[in-house]
Design a protein around this nucleic acid. Structure first.
Length: 325
DNA sequence: CGATTTTGACCGGCGC
DNA sequence: GCGCCGGTCAAAATCG
């Protein structure tokens, strides 16, 4: 447990998405893409689609979310580090199996889990695929997913009930440029496995939220194409707030209030979703098919937000609610 | 000494 | 039916 975080490195924004058909999701049709694409580290044949960011027009995240929510919640989190930034989210539709990212590997579990030298924060709820978003940090608030979760609970290893198969929960993934594998996102995680990733020299690590009853899981892997990129995939939504022990860290930064002064700033809970709702700009990626795309952008508005965020935090600490849990 | 990580075995789905 | 593969379990090891 150590918790330390420090300032971090920088993240770059990538977006990729593999949401497939979307019925929901963020798919805007945009067209231009401003970012540059990165190679796909994820799926091999992904063609990148466009992601575009809307600059001026701020689309409210809300809109986006609305669309998005249905399927998954996005909860992404935004991690803000002042220096860093960006990541991407991706939601995945249900994919059959692989998560999509094929490339990366993960964290070595062995190394530094949460404390690495520099940690970045990022997080999001689950994702899978490849998308990107920019900064984030925390997790996902979505709610639905887990309720039933049956995942953990009943899975005895061998006897699972016959008939039910586990359903998959929505996942969100985002990419972060960082040398630290396990990005601090405010929640406490317990590693429960590590597997080698096919075609990649880096392993993938599996983590589960340590909060009781919370079924959220996440996996972390490093892109084999660009080792500086860490792909984090969240599955499920937290049914609790960020642990109090982490307050001050990332947790503090997560508060959505910042973005929405006009919204309720009180103590609300702050889920990333809320955050998203308040963010003025967004990038969109079209997800067209099921291919995944990855986009990388240079920072843009998001970065600014992040920075602003950081400043706010420093200047007006009181503005950030503390959460307890 | 409790919590977390490590790591190989195991499980279940899927494609051939 | 078999093998591959992603994901999970769980005992042992390690950490703090």
């Amino acid at each position: 447990m150590a918790e330390e975080y420090r300032d971090l490195h920088y993240h770059q924004p990538f977006y990729n998405d593999r949401y497939g058909s979307g019925t929901h999701g963020f798919t805007f049709s945009g067209s231009s893409s401003s970012a540059y694409t990165q190679d796909a580290s994820l799926t091999a044949n992904s063609s990148f689609h466009n992601l575009q960011m809307l600059d001026p027009p701020y689309m409210s995240f809300t809109e986006i979310l609305q669309g998005a929510n249905d399927n998954n919640t996005l909860a992404g989190a935004f991690g803000w580090s002042r220096t860093s930034s960006s990541e991407a989210f991706s939601r995945v539709k249900d994919e059959p199996k692989s998560v999509g990212v094929g490339a990366g590997d993960s964290v070595g579990g062995s190394e530094t889990p949460a404390t690495a030298n520099s940690s970045i924060s990022s997080s999001s709820t689950e994702a899978v695929g490849n998308e990107n978003s920019s900064k984030n940090q925390k997790e996902n608030p979505v709610k639905e997913a887990m309720e039933d979760g049956e995942d953990n609970s009943k899975k005895e290893v061998k006897t699972k009930k016959k008939g039910e198969k586990k359903q998959k929960q929505p996942r969100f993934a985002f990419m972060t440029k960082s040398d630290v594998d396990h990005l601090e996102d405010g929640y406490r995680w317990r590693k429960y496995g590590q597997k080698a990733v096919k075609n990649s020299p880096y392993p993938r690590s599996y983590y589960r939220c340590t909060t009781q009853k919370c079924l959220v899981k996440k996996r972390i892997e490093r892109s084999f194409q660009d080792p500086s990129i860490v792909i984090t995939t969240y599955e499920g939504q937290h049914n609790h707030h960020v642990p109090a022990t982490l307050r001050g860290n990332v947790a503090g930064m997560l508060s959505p209030s910042m973005f929405a002064p006009s919204l309720s700033l009180q103590e609300g809970p702050l889920f990333p979703q809320e955050l998203l709702l308040q963010i003025p700009h967004m990038y969109n990626y079209g997800a067209a098919g099921s291919t995944s795309n990855v986009y990388q952008q240079n920072l843009t508005p998001f970065e600014q937000l992040q920075q602003d965020f950081g400043l706010l935090h420093d200047l007006i600490p009181s503005a950030f609610p503390k959460q307890e849990n």
